[in-house]
């Protein structure tokens, strides 16, 4: 994917250094520093926006669009078909592997769209923008570190998988606290973390296991598609 780079950079900078601080200021002034739940939802949405706009402005081919759509659908299907095995959700792993093969932008899109689409099945809610941002960010991070590596460093990859699980859990806990208290309180955050720790551990472990076992076969398939059909080669 090639982009209008300069324009895009200015937009991202504006978004991250002007729009988001303005939103926070709005929260302080208009809501007397109290209603951060709504502010945080807006911020999570704004943070996703530059990636989506970049994708809209790019001249991504129909093949590239459809490959991202397929990977996202696979991540969602993974979440649904593995439902019988508690705690084992391959979404994060599929997002990370997609990012390794196709780059950070494809990773962000796959991650955030997986959240949006799987919530069509599990129910949308105020948490949707958070999940979109969290999974998108994990994809982006993986793309930054591993892009184009035929054989990614397994230990580093597992570490990223574990961190991915932890990031996802910690970010969703922030949302829980904001939703209840309106503002961020450390004591509530610690309680939220402690109640979600078992899930976090299970989730991170399943990410690590999935990545350790299945990165190679899936990555081979994706790289084959990449070479055979010339997608994401730019």
């Amino acid at each position: 994917m090639t982009y209008v780079k300069r324009k895009k950079l200015i937009f991202s900078v504006l978004m991250y250094f002007v729009a988001i601080p303005l939103t926070i200021l709005l929260g302080v002034v208009l809501f007397n520093d109290r209603q951060y739940s709504i502010i945080s939802i807006i911020i999570a949405g704004l943070a996703c926006l530059p990636f989506f706009i970049r994708f809209e402005k790019s001249n991504a081919s129909s093949r590239e669009i459809i490959v991202i759509a397929t990977m996202t659908a696979l991540a969602v299907v993974g979440r649904i078909v593995f439902m019988a095995l508690p705690g084992f959700k391959p979404v994060t792993a599929i997002v990370i592997i997609t990012a390794i093969a196709f780059g950070k932008d494809a990773g962000f899109l796959t991650g955030s769209m997986s959240a949006l689409v799987s919530n069509i099945y599990y129910g949308q809610g105020p948490w949707t923008p958070f999940q979109m941002l969290a999974w998108g960010f994990i994809g982006f991070l993986a793309g930054m570190i591993f892009y184009k590596k035929e054989k990614p460093n397994m230990i580093l990859l597992i570490v990223v998988g574990i961190i991915g699980g932890v990031i996802f859990s910690l970010m969703m806990d922030v949302w829980t606290v904001l939703a209840l208290d309106g503002a961020f309180t450390m004591s509530r955050y610690l309680i939220a973390i402690s109640t979600s720790t078992p899930f976090m551990v299970l989730y991170s472990a399943s990410n690590a296991a999935f990545l350790a076992l299945f990165t190679k076969p899936i990555l081979e398939k994706l790289n084959r598609i990449k070479v055979k059909y010339k997608v994401f080669t730019a």
Partner: peptide
């Protein structure tokens, strides 16, 4: 507003039940 993302979304919504069936 977002033609490419919307197209992607509609494809995903087509794919998900199709993939589950195939699975």
């Amino acid at each position: 507003v977002i033609p490419k993302l919307a197209l992607m979304l509609s494809m995903m919504l087509n794919f998900v039940p199709k993939f589950i069936k195939q699975f």
